[in-house]
Structures are given as structure tokens and as C-alpha cells.
Design a protein around this nucleic acid. Structure first.
Lengths: 250, 250
DNA sequence: TGAATACGTTATGTATACAATAACTCGGAG
DNA sequence: CTCCGAGTTATTGTATACATAACGTATTCA
């Protein structure tokens, strides 16, 4: 064995996967760029076998694309790919909300959602919102969406939503950060929070159709805001996740 | 190198993946059963590295589940998991139909869909439908759904639908075969065909909401029929794909 | 001078050896 | 008789060596 430093706390495969994902999302690896296994071995510290397993997982996750002649490259996305992904996720979350409403949710299960809601309310009281508060918002928002998804009690649906969220631009942190650069950010967040409130209310009152509708509207709001953010390209360098957008790199 | 027979026409990884998937779907490997790598090496003819890559892919595909202590087991599904997956797929196909309607589709692009429709009409003229005709129907139906999905022109959505369809019970062949055992099969297929007709009409007339609604109804029909099929357990041994249902194995 | 082919280099696909961990069994003690 | 523990075995995780295919470069021929 070489002088390789082996971290036994997590598996080499997971370590490599996280490291490579970071490199992709941070923009170290550009869209369309081929990923060299040897290079990945050096940067991640794992050997080729776990690196290859990580590459396969990232391909299935949608961040990488297999090259026919062999190997993998960083996938490139169009602006429409991204807005479609957001709408897709909203559609799935709408289904989750409807399932939750139709199948019934106890007050105890709604408790953490309401706590999340209250915490976000607290943050939004700041005008204008600080960068730190925005960072907290991103975390809380992600937590809210994850909890809501769980309420569906449908493992296949939860799994699929996780997949849809794996695409970074569709993840809360992705598009919420995009919105943070906008002057309209505060107003947007207030509307989004209103959606959160309505979906909980609809679930409590077992109104499946209303719960579904508001989550879809929530996604449409996000799509509109993404478009706005992409028009204001001046702020886009703040958004590493959006480095994946093909057209932005040209 | 041992006396191993190496088939160089396809990659060992793909070969192993196909072989293992077959074993799972055919019921050779039962739900909850642990998959031994060594055993998989023997049955697939590939070595451990490609076998492991195949296992990772099948896990991402949803057929396998990682065991915390290491290795993989065949995933087990409840009846609700399956009906949820069908509804999930219907929801995604509804979105695809809406995208197609809203974004517009040329007559030329609709041509293959209409050919598919006509071919199915031809099959359904037989009363009662033969087993061979049913087999053809499964193929044609899968083709119709695939073509419809393509019309959305949304790579992320197409990808996600493929994923949702990877779960065999949600795939056309899976649940359509389940329906084939039912005495009501013929009537069901006629209604399903009517849905196909409506969605094409809606797309032609650029009625997004109607296109989406009919695909969702299409899925709800499938869910109802799956429930019917599961009540008639006498026919279920004909349906290897449904061997994945947890409760059916008890 | 340009194009095509052959050769060399590099990177991926595959196989296997080695290491570490988890499960199982057997034995002993309470 | 049961429960706990140590040893052993089997299986997975990791590393690396080898095979093969693709790409780039250089040289030669037209």
C-alpha cells in the first residue's frame, strides 16, 4: 500500500461521490468536460474501483453522461431543461401533497412543518433580508419541502422526488439562491411562504385538489423567478450551481 | 486468464445488468433475498467489477436496495407502492402530454402515434382477444407511451418517466399483463384505447389541460385494474413481474 | 502539400488479489 | 439449558495489475 491516506470513517465510494459532486457543482469541472478517472483518483484520494462506482452513481443521478466511446462527461443543461426540472419537481410535490391530504395526517405529524413555517416567518421579518438569513432560509425551505414529501407516506414517490431534486438547479438551494440575487427577492419569498401556509392548511382540511394545485403554482413561481434571475446575468457568477447551464458558459 | 468465455459484443457490465434484471423479474431472486456477488459472478459470467457496477445501476433503478452492512438485496414492494408508482407515472405522462400540447407538435410527429393507434384498433377488433394479440398489444402500448413521452421534447422529463417506468410493475408490460388475466380485459383495453385517442386529439388542438387530465385518468384506470387483478389471485402466477409484490409472496 | 495509415501513448474496461468486516458456529461457563 | 464470547468463515470493500480500444502524432506516399 502506498502512502495513501485512508479515511475509514466513510466508505471510499461515498467519499469519492461527494468529492466529485462538489467539483461539478462548484464549477471546477465544466459542462461537457470529460472526467478523467486517473485525475479523479488523484483529487478524491480513492482508488479507481470506488471512483468508478461513484461515477456510475453520479451518472444515474443525472449529473454525468456516459460517453459512447467510454468514460463520462459533465452533463450540460439548457435553460429550458432547468425550468422543466423545476416544474417536474413541483408536479411531483403536488402529488405528494395530494396524497398527504387524501390519506390524512395527524396533528403530531404536521408539528415540524408548522415549526418550519414559523422559523421562516421569523426570518422574513427582516427587511431587507441579510445574507446569513438567506442562507438559513435555504436550509429551512429545503427542510420544509423534505418534510412535506414525507407526509405522502409513499416510498416510490419520495424516492422519485429525491431524484428530481438531485439535479442541483431544481433543488431548493439551487433556485432559491438564484432568486437571492434579485431585487424582488423579498417579495418572492413572501409569496412562496404563503404557498407553504396554504398547502399545510389544505392538508389539514383534507382538500387534496387544493393542496396539489398550490404546490404546482409554487413551482411555476420558481420558474418565473429563475427566468428573471437568468435575465440579470450580472448576479449569476454568485450561483455556482447554475454554472451547469450550457448557454451561460458560452 | 481462466477459461472464462468472454462475449465481446456487449460490455460485461451491460451483460451482467441484463442478466441480473432478468433473474429479478423472472422471480429467480425473491424479494428481500440478498444478492451474493460471487453467485452473480457465476450466473452472469462477468467478473466482480462489472457485476458490482451492474448492482449499483440496478439499485439506482430501484430494483435493488443497499444493505447497510454491505451488499444488496432484492427490493420488496407493497401493493400500495405499486399503485402509487402507476399513478406517479401517469402524473408524469400527464405533464408530458401537456408540454406536447402547449409547445405544439407537427402533423409529421403525430404520424407514428396515429399508426400505433390504428394498429391497436386492429388488434382490439378480435373478440375475444388472443394471447398472441395481447402480446402484440403490450408492445404497441409501450411504443405509444414512449412516443407520447418523446413529444414533450423535455429531456429531464423523458428521463424521469423512463426511471418511473423502470419499476416493472409500473411499466406497460407489467400492469397491462396483469390486466390480461382479467375477464374484463377486453373492455379495459377499449377504454384505454379511447384515452389514447383523446390525448392525441387534445395535443392536436393544443388543449394542454385536457391532454394532461386524460393521461391521469388513464393511470387511475390502470390502478383500478391492478386492484382487480390482485383480487383475482388465481391468475397471478402468470405474471412474473408481480412476483415483486411483498404480500403476494407471504 | 495534403491526406492516409501505422505506430505509440493514454485511458478505459476487466479481472483478480488483498484487506477488513460482519455473520455464524462451537465451546464453555453460569 | 441458555447465554455469552471467541474463533473461524464467508462476503463485501478496496486496490492494482493487465487487456483492449481509442486517440493523437508522425511519417510516408500520392
Amino acid at each position: 500500500m502506498a502512502e495513501r491516506e485512508v479515511d475509514r470513517s466513510v466508505s471510499q465510494t461515498v467519499k469519492a461521490q461527494l468529492a466529485l459532486r462538489d467539483q461539478i457543482l462548484s464549477g471546477s469541472l465544466r459542462p461537457g468536460e470529460r472526467i478523467s478517472e486517473l485525475q479523479a483518483v488523484e483529487t478524491t484520494g480513492a482508488s479507481r474501483t470506488p471512483v468508478r462506482m461513484a461515477l456510475v452513481r453520479l451518472e444515474e443521478e443525472g449529473l454525468l453522461e456516459a460517453i459512447p466511446s467510454g468514460g463520462f462527461m459533465v452533463k450540460a443543461f439548457s435553460e429550458r431543461d432547468i425550468s422543466d426540472s423545476i416544474e417536474l419537481r413541483g408536479t411531483l410535490e403536488g402529488l405528494a401533497a395530494r396524497f398527504a391530504a387524501e390519506r390524512g395526517v395527524s396533528a403530531r405529524e404536521l408539528e415540524p412543518l408548522k415549526e418550519c413555517l414559523a422559523a421562516i416567518d421569523e426570518l422574513l421579518r427582516q427587511v431587507p433580508i441579510s445574507v446569513d438569513a438567506f442562507s438559513s432560509y435555504v436550509t429551512l425551505n429545503a427542510r420544509f419541502h423534505a418534510l412535506l414529501t414525507e407526509l405522502s407516506r409513499s416510498p416510490p414517490l419520495i424516492r422519485q422526488i429525491d431524484r428530481a431534486s438531485a439535479l442541483p438547479f431544481a433543488s431548493p438551494s439551487g433556485f432559491v439562491m438564484a432568486q437571492s440575487a434579485l431585487p424582488e427577492a423579498q417579495q418572492i419569498l413572501i409569496i412562496a411562504q404563503e404557498h407553504h401556509r396554504v398547502v399545510i392548511d389544505a392538508i389539514e382540511n383534507r382538500e387534496g385538489a387544493r393542496a396539489e394545485a398550490v404546490m404546482r403554482e409554487h413551482a411555476r413561481l420558481a420558474v418565473r423567478n429563475l427566468r428573471l434571475a437568468l435575465r440579470n446575468r450580472t448576479h449569476l457568477d454568485l450561483l455556482p450551481a447554475l454554472a451547469l447551464i450550457k448557454s451561460a458558459t458560452d
